[in-house]
Amino acid sequence: MTEPPLLDIRDLHLSMTSFDGEAHVLAGVNLSVRRNEVWGVVGETGCGKSLTGLSISRLVPSPPARYLGGKILFDGRDLLSLDEAGMRNLRGHRIGMIFQDPTTNLNPAFRIGEQLVDVALAADRRNPDILGVAARAGRRARRRAARDLAVRTLAEVGITDAAERIDAYPHEFSGGMRQRVLIAMALIGRPDLLIADEPTTALDVSVQSQILALLAGMVRDHAMGVILITHNLGVVAKACSHVAVMYAGVIVESGPVAAVLRKPSHPYTRALMSSIPTSGVRRGELKGLPGQVPNLIKPPRGCRFAPRCAQAAEACRAGPPRPVDIGGGHMAACLKPGPAAEAA
């Protein structure tokens, strides 16, 4: 634990302007990721998990977005202070991204090889080790090397006959295969940090587990840090070493997967876990969470979960609770953290 974190998000605040007003969509996000850690970021739709991922790559269009405060330290450098050119130096080659829908994230008009080669060439411009060709090598030699690397990377993500399939168009692949291609595209620049935004949500369950296993292998082989954004706690349990639970723009609980899932300490985490259907659940036993996600244009002054929380007290509504360490890096942003003291 002596090594400084690869990524350190500190008290990140982000607002989005819409017709109705300015919504405070990220309200103090803290997250630090080290190499070889796989962080699952879970939460319901609109809780800010994707925005957090996009913020790291600075891909949130601004306007309408506005960073109100905080830092995103990557290798000690604050990404929020970089300009577009500075960010481009990191994208693909230091920070890779995978998005949700493999059917819409590959350009339909180009062979997959073409897209892979361009990503590899862009990464090679920042780190000549990627292609390993001499600096004075010509364009054609460079492209040939990039193509070889693309074939190797495709084979690495489990595409058989990569040497032939590289000349296929995206629509000639199945959904799972396309996601493998996208993973290859994200990995070809050998990034240190991989952000995967719901990479398995659009896939069949059987393909999901293949993709998760593939990602896990890639993390091991390349010693990457990973942020896996998902709304599926099952995916977290299967693929992650750490988890951060988000609610309404705040990370309410975080820590090693085993600790958090075994001893959920924030009422929202508990609510989230009790809403997972399992085979043993009988009709009427599955619990939902009453109430609605707060309006982020006028968020609650105190804890953002307080309006839906059964244990909320006056103090909870006074101001946002600070995250506290409840042991072994297990953090909960709750005034009364602890295993369910629920009046059952």
């Binding site: 891909l59 577009e84 990191l90 994208r91 693909g92 998005f99 819409t104 361009d118 862009a122 595209m185």
Partner: peptide, 17 residues
């Protein structure tokens, strides 16, 4: 506005390309 343009940006391709 398409997703693949976001992916291309996220993977470091230049705006011009």
């Amino acid at each position: 506005q398409q997703d693949y343009v976001m992916t291309e940006r996220a993977l470091g391709l230049s705006q011009r390309l």
